[in-house]
Design a protein around this nucleic acid. Sequence first.
DNA 1: TACATGATGCCCT
DNA 2: GGGCATCATGTAG
Length: 211
Amino acid sequence: MKKFGSLIPRSFYNRDPRLVAPELLGKILVRREGRKVLTGRVVEVEAYLGENDAASHSARGETRRNAVMFGLPGFVYVYFIYGNHYCMNVSCLPKGIAGGILFRALEPLEGIEEMAMARGISIAGPKDLENLTSGPGRLAEAFDITRLRDNGKDLTRKKSDLFIAEDPSKDYDRARRILTTPRIGITKAAELPLRYVLAGNAFVSGPRIRG
DNA sequence: TACATGATGCCCT
DNA sequence: GGGCATCATGTAG
């Protein structure tokens, strides 16, 4: 049985992040580590816009750090935050127009032992599994996503060691329900409802959301 | 060159 | 629920 389906094409990302973000839920993030494969289902994302979004890194124009957000859609933007954590985004909209989506939580599927190793924890119970990739810093650490290794990488090439694919289990796709909430951990434009989660999913970060 | 700040997570109460 | 580690980046001087 196939673990992940067809690759998501660049045209998928060549739209407003507010349209791409909810559709990204349920897709599969794939990391190749040599012979091993790590996969996780996207269960929580946040949209970040361009100039009209004060919370976005691209709000004040292009710099060397945020250049990927202004480039072609479907590329990885990784930044380092709070001296401790990496966060992973994918660029949206055509070249020259900023926009992107932050990956906030995954449901780990394959390579759970490798992820736990990367996180420096052991899985002793269901709570440990739920916390494995629940949060932007956590999922980046579990998938060994760093700025040096992954920033600027093309997510739409299957030969890449990092890409996004369809979820082949259609039953899950049918059952999904999407919830929209304000974004987490920001001070500017905090009221905008640009966070998207799969309702009721145990791997969503933050307080439990019933659905 | 210096400094303030942040799209977080962990540990302590 | 709150404090804090820790550093790349951006902006000011």
